[in-house]
Design a protein around this nucleic acid. Structure first.
Lengths: 195, 195
DNA sequence: CCTACCGATCGGTAGG
DNA sequence: CCTACCGATCGGTAGG
């Protein structure tokens, strides 16, 4: 069954593309309206404000990432395997929601309370869960001992370039497999050949 | 000799902080002026436009990164050592210019031509130089063979979190050494313990 | 460095 | 969905 796209969905999708392209502040309601083929004032029949567009997009994607890590964490795998699953899932969610995921890097700072607090909490929960998995892995001798905060920032940051449709363009499944494998290999085993 | 900070330098520094905080578009000339203790119209005695502030900041930092990689590349070290030196230098330049370096991620897209073209050229030259070093290293068996574009994006992206003063706050030299060592070790040898 | 002011555009509302 | 319109703010200029 093909469900017809509602006007609200169209507005959200076009906004995500524009925010990603020009940033939230530099995107006007005129921009969004013209990409939807209506007048700016007509947008307000579907959304309350520009801010509501941003918060809807960001909370939805933040919840997707958070739900994913909760599911992986609930399995009975080793810490090393959990880390691997989390990174793979992270890549998949990012690729399926590329235009929205990229907003997580820049435009979240334009969120206003109470949505800002909600978003930051989800983000912190995600990081804390990842932190405790890596810490346990270090204690069990599965993961190399190092400053956990630094390691987490390196791992999460190293994935961010794929959020940007202009840097990475997911064309087919073969590419996605190579991407996953290269990222996993680089992060897990490093770039140099140990002599 | 202590040279007195010119008003123009103050404007550039305060703008970098504000752009970093709110983004270029969401920062008004009023914001910049009030942080400098003058009226908005007075700024125009020192700078031509808001756009000129952005381009001055971005071209200066882009040139610093580019000059650095050129110097390292001109040495007679191995490709592996060159890569190591480039990453270390990258971290150092980023930490010495944290507020400006963070603009390289987001606000460069608000540059207008011809400065935009100039900036993108410097960035491409940097990446191409890094690419050829890594490719040579792969051929010589110093660096593991993999898709070079993906590896470069992982490496450069993994450093970006340190640009943000809110994520990483460089307090003393000891921290910087730990940061450098952890990044180098993670990127070069990976996070897991190979059994 | 200031005051005074410009046209343009912003997000959003009223009313049909 | 539209036209008409609102007050506020934008980057920037004139003139002293």
């Amino acid at each position: 069954m093909i469900t017809k796209k509602t006007r609200k969905q169209t507005i959200l999708e076009e906004s995500a593309i524009l925010f990603n392209d020009k940033g939230y502040s530099a995107t006007s309601m005129q921009d969004i309206a013209s990409h939807c083929g209506v007048r700016a004032s007509s947008l307000y029949n579907h959304i309350k404000s520009k801010q509501e567009i941003l918060s809807t997009l960001l909370l939805e994607i933040a919840n997707k990432f958070y739900d994913g890590i909760v599911i992986v964490n609930a399995t009975s795998k080793s810490h090393k395997e959990k880390l691997q699953e989390i990174i793979k899932l992270h890549i998949q969610v990012a690729m399926e929601n590329q235009n929205v995921t990229s907003l997580v890097i820049n435009d979240w700072k334009h969120l206003e309370d109470p949505k800002l607090t909600e978003f930051v909490a989800l983000r912190n929960n995600y990081q804390n869960m990842l932190e405790s998995i890596i810490e346990s892995g270090m204690e069990k001798g599965e993961i190399k001992k190092a400053n956990v905060k630094i390691v987490i920032n390196i791992i999460l940051s190293s994935l961010r370039w794929i959020y940007n449709p202009k840097i990475y363009n997911n064309t087919n499944n073969e590419d996605l497999v190579e991407l996953e494998n290269t990222i996993m290999d680089t992060l897990f085993r490093g770039v140099i050949i140990v002599e």
